Amino acid sequence: MRFHTRKWVKPENLNPNGTLFGGKLLAWIDEELALYTIIQLKNTKVVTKYMSEINFRSSAKQGDIIEIGIDVLKFGTTSLTLKCEARNMMTRETIITIDHTTMVNLGPDGKPKPHGKTEIEFIKDRLDN
């Protein structure tokens, strides 16, 4: 799994228990999945269609650094299916796993549009062309 971004847990990210609010982590993950998909499909019009069971395995506290990783599971005709993990870099524990998230490529009309991609494209490969 490739880890693409890091987030710093600040006081405004905490729940009443003094740990990372799960909704904040899910927002970070959703944004990262969207950004990843936008870059892969070269289209800023993408939406989250589906997230599988979300498994919270541990937490984080103020000052911890969270790392978000993504793997591509499948390229569909109009979609990209991804796997995600967020881990606490301070404790080395996995905080959350999401086995399947489906991101859909949209056309100008807001309807699903085929993207024509079949494999991951890395930025370094784009720069060589």
Rank of each mutant, 00 (worst) to 15 (best):
R92Y: 01
R87C: 08
K74W: 07
I54Q: 03
G76P: 00
A27G: 00
L26A: 00
Q62H: 14
N55Y: 12
V46F: 02
D64E: 15
Q40Y: 11
Y50Q: 12
K74T: 10
L26T: 14
G76F: 11
W28I: 02
R87F: 07
T48R: 13
I70F: 10
E53W: 06
I68C: 07
I95K: 03
D30R: 09
I54C: 08
T81E: 14
K49T: 04
W28A: 02
W28C: 13
E32R: 13
Y36R: 06
E32M: 02
S52E: 12
A27T: 13
L82M: 15
T44M: 14
A60Q: 14
L82W: 06
W28D: 09
Y36H: 13
S58H: 12
G63F: 09
N43C: 04
S79L: 03
T48H: 12
K42G: 01
Q62Y: 09
K45Q: 06
T37S: 08
R57K: 11
V72C: 04
S59V: 11
K61S: 00
E85F: 01
L33A: 02
K61T: 09
K74C: 12
E32P: 02
M89Q: 15
T78F: 14
W28E: 07
G69D: 13
Y36L: 04
Y36V: 06
L26G: 01
R87V: 03
Q40G: 05
L33I: 11
I70S: 05
L33W: 13
V47M: 10
M90G: 03
D71Q: 14
E85T: 00
A60R: 00
L80R: 09
V46E: 04
D64P: 13
N88W: 11
T44H: 08
M51R: 01
A60Y: 15
S79W: 03
R92E: 10
T91K: 05
N88I: 13
K45T: 03
S79D: 10
T48Q: 15
Q62S: 15
L82E: 15
K83R: 15
Q62R: 08
V72S: 10
N88P: 11
T81I: 01
L80S: 02
L41E: 07
G63C: 05
Y50V: 13
N88Q: 13
L73P: 01
K83P: 00
T94E: 07
I65E: 12
E93H: 12
F75D: 08
T44Y: 12
E53M: 14
A27N: 05
L73H: 01
I29T: 13
R87D: 09
T77H: 15
A60V: 01
